[in-house]
Design a protein around this nucleic acid. Structure first.
Length: 415
RNA sequence: GUGGGUGUAGCUCAACGGCAGAGCACCGGCCUGUGGCGCCGGUGGUUGCGGGUUCGAUUCCCGUCAUCCACCCCA
């Protein structure tokens, strides 16, 4: 046997219905909120992520699937979608043809990490991005879409957390204040925090080491250092969320690991995922388009982990397969007639099957039952002689004779 | 990359130095024209892989691979 690559998974029948349910709702909601689909390649130049996602991030430093292709190009399997979306926005001049572009995409991402619950090397995301709009109402609409997805899927006990990390003007001031406040205490923090203080000081807030908490609790908060413009923006976002009745919790510890975030950041946390509890996360990235060579356009978006959404689905999720018909044939004449019948049903747009290998009636009925059949049609010598078909409602356990000509209509009514 | 748990039938799990088992699932029969419930029978295993200790290893030891959980980080 040649097994699947570590951290990759087959999605088998039985689970794939859950995926289809999530994908269907995701598309429907995106379209309803005015987002249009875009599809970008899953391989890009390494440089795109180095510059876009950020050299200091763990993603770029140790998690990318990067290799040299036969032409000597350094290519990377995308670890996230945003840089590709920005690249495409710039490359095709969408800033002119689609001012205020609202785009969504779905597909696989790749990160070389140790797999655990809710974390895989090939995983899938729904990604949405809104370019060229800086009003706080846009932030609120993006969060509204994210929250509608969670509630629409019926995921219980999810929590929306928001924060603002400031902009290129005020973030450096906050960062300096953070390090100043830390002062001599830096040496008392864990090794990870000491490393973070150099690479990305804001991430000290992610620390889970109990001994570090008293020190971290005493550190300043980014919202107290926002410039006037950022403060006004953040207030606007919260006002809009309140106006549409979305419940949020503000956390100064929500900092997020990607370099490009500015102003609003947010996450939705689930209860059933163990340590990997972020169902979706995102924020504003007002400098990224320009940084990647485009015009000075703002951007905001989020990525939702499809695997995590599927894991968080409630038992009651409406993923039931549509009704199906199954034809049971008795005898050679019956099999010939049954074959005609399923062709007729299929051409009428109705899902129908029969047992293609000759087996006893009992075995055929059992198969129909296992396939969660709603209607079973029985065709044997008796029915053929009368020009009828026996139609059995599997759930009710009731059956009746139906004229051969009326079968399609009768089946359609029961499905 | 670091630490820990677990690998036995398709699935969930027993056996824990001495003939590898059960439940569910699958196939057949009871019932030569009726699924779910029942009864009877059957198919299915190099006990993840490699090495070691032993008269004998699923069991003990080492390695390796996979997987799960946690850290790191993130969706």
């Amino acid at each position: 046997m040649i097994p699947a690559i570590r951290g990759t998974h087959d999605i088998l029948p039985g689970d794939v219905e859950k995926w289809q349910f999530v994908e269907r709702l995701a598309r429907e909601l995106c379209e309803r909120y005015g987002y249009v689909e875009i599809r970008t390649p899953i391989i890009e130049r390494e440089e795109l992520f180095a510059k876009g996602t950020g050299e200091s991030t763990d993603i770029v430093q140790k998690e990318m699937y990067t290799f040299t292709d036969k032409g000597g190009e350094r290519v990377t399997l995308r670890p996230e979608a945003t840089p590709s979306m920005v690249r495409s926005y710039i490359e095709h001049n969408l800033e002119h043809t689609m001012p205020a572009a609202k785009l969504y995409a779905m597909g696989p991402m790749f990160r070389y990490e140790r797999p655990q619950k809710g974390r895989y090397r090939q995983f899938h995301q729904l990604d949405i991005e809104a370019f060229g709009m800086q009003d706080p109402a846009v932030d609120a609409e993006v969060i509204d879409l994210a929250w509608s997805l969670i509630t629409g899927l019926g995921i219980p006990q999810a929590e929306l957390v928001i924060n603002s990390v400031g902009c290129a003007t005020c973030r450096p001031v906050f960062q300096k204040a953070l390090l100043d406040a830390l002062g001599d205490n830096l040496g008392n923090l864990c090794g990870d925090c000491q490393r973070r203080s150099v690479t990305n000081p804001l991430r000290i807030y992610d620390c889970k080491v109990p001994a570090d908490q008293p020190i971290i609790d005493a550190l300043p908060h980014s919202i107290d250092y926002l410039c006037e413009s950022c403060a006004t923006h953040f207030t606007g976002v919260k006002t809009h969320l309140d106006a549409i009745g979305i419940i949020w919790r503000q956390s100064h510890r929500l900092v997020r690991g990607l370099d490009y975030y500015t102003r609003t950041t947010f996450e939705v946390l689930g209860q059933t995922l163990g340590a990997q509890n972020a169902l979706l996360g995102g924020g504003r990235y007002d400098g990224l388009v320009k940084q990647l060579g485009g015009a000075d356009k703002t951007g905001i978006g989020f990525a939702a982990g499809m695997e995590r959404l599927v894991l968080a689905l409630p038992e009651s999720a409406p993923i039931a397969a549509p009704g199906r018909a199954f034809v049971v044939a008795i005898g050679e004449d019956g099999r010939a007639a049954a074959w005609q019948l399923i062709r007729e049903l299929r051409q009428a747009g109705l899902p129908a099957q029969m047992e293609l290998e000759a087996r006893g009636v009992r075995a055929q009925m059992k198969r129909a039952d296992r396939l969660a059949t709603r209607v079973t049609l029985i065709v044997g010598g008796d029915e053929l002689a009368r020009g009828e078909v026996t139609l059995r409602d599997m759930a009710r356990g009731e059956q009746r004779a139906v004229a051969r000509d009326a079968v399609v209509t009768a089946v359609r009514e029961l499905l």
